[in-house]
Amino acid sequence: MQARLPNAELAFLSTGGSAEIMAPESETPDEVLTLAAAMQFCGFRPIVGTLWTMEDIDGPELTEKVYKYMLRHGPDIINVRDSAVAVHLATKSMREAGVPLHRWAMIVHVGI
C-alpha cells in the first residue's frame, strides 16, 4: 500500500477473491482492506477483481472480452474509463450464454 505508482492505469487482478473484504485479524471489523483497495492506494485508477475464486474456464473468456472492448479503437487509443463498460459487457455476455450466477456475479469493477 505504501508504493506510489504515478503512472498506474488499470489493474486486472486474476487472483481468487481479490476484492473480497477481509477484516484485520486483531482490529475492528469496520476497518477492511481488499487487494483491489490496496491497488487504489498505490495509484491504480480502475481495478477489476473478484469477490471469490473464479472458475478456471471463465478467466480467459472474461479477460479476452474486457481487453477486446478496450482495444476496439486500436492499441494506441485506450481509455481506462472504458474498463467499467468492458466488465459490464463481459459479464452480460456470460449471463446471456447461460453461465450460472455464481460464476459471473463475483466480478467487480472498482474505481473510475
Rank of each mutant, 00 (worst) to 15 (best):
Q2M: 11
R4C: 06
L5I: 15
P6E: 08
E9A: 14
L10Y: 05
A11S: 13
F12T: 09
L13N: 06
S14Y: 01
S14G: 14
S14M: 14
G17H: 08
A19I: 00
E20R: 14
I21W: 13
I21D: 15
S26V: 03
T28N: 12
P29L: 08
E31C: 05
E31A: 11
E31Q: 10
V32R: 13
L33G: 06
L33K: 06
L35R: 05
A36V: 11
A38R: 11
F41G: 11
G43C: 10
F44M: 07
R45T: 11
I47G: 03
T50H: 00
T50Q: 02
M54G: 00
E55I: 00
D56F: 04
I57V: 11
D58R: 00
D58I: 00
T63A: 15
E64M: 09
E64S: 13
V66E: 00
Y67L: 15
Y67E: 07
K68R: 15
K68I: 01
K68T: 15
K68C: 04
Y69D: 07
Y69Q: 07
H73V: 01
P75T: 10
D76V: 04
I77S: 13
N79T: 05
N79H: 14
V80D: 04
D82Y: 02
S83W: 01
S83D: 03
V85E: 14
V85S: 06
V87T: 07
S93H: 10
M94W: 04
R95F: 09
V99G: 00
V99W: 01
V99P: 01
V99T: 08
P100C: 05
P100N: 10
P100L: 07
H102N: 12
W104S: 02
W104H: 15
M106G: 14
I107K: 03
I112M: 06
